[in-house]
Amino acid sequence: MELETSNECMTVEQAKELLRNGINCQIDSNEPGQFKVGDQVRAKVIHVQNYTRLPRYIRGKVGMIVKDYGIYVFPDAVGMRLGTKPQHIYSVRFTAQEIWGSDASAKDALYIDLFDDYLESV
């Protein structure tokens, strides 16, 4: 993914290409992540003033990493045009009761995709 924009009128051909191929947000790299599958992690309690993809309801909650998706550009930086800040993103599983308390179903769970920058060790 490139951060620089051409500021050129999108042609029909460019639009077709964008529809067909989209925008690749993944980075090919072997750089290790801060966490691994099975780790217990806490979503940081942070109140970013600008753009973030870390919703409020998950901040401060503890979950488990179930999958490492690899390295992706960091939307919080991209949305502000501050760079791509590539880092690992993980699928993290939280029990419904961890997020919503004992009134929630003991059976249910929520999965959300969280970047290294959103997480801390427990």
Binding site: P55, Y69, A96, K107, A109, Y111, D113
Partner: peptide, 15 residues
């Protein structure tokens, strides 16, 4: 059914 696990996926990122 209460015997079935409901998994909610919040697609907050680029996946």
């Amino acid at each position: 059914s209460n015997h079935v696990e409901v998994r909610v996926w919040d697609s907050n990122a680029d996946l």
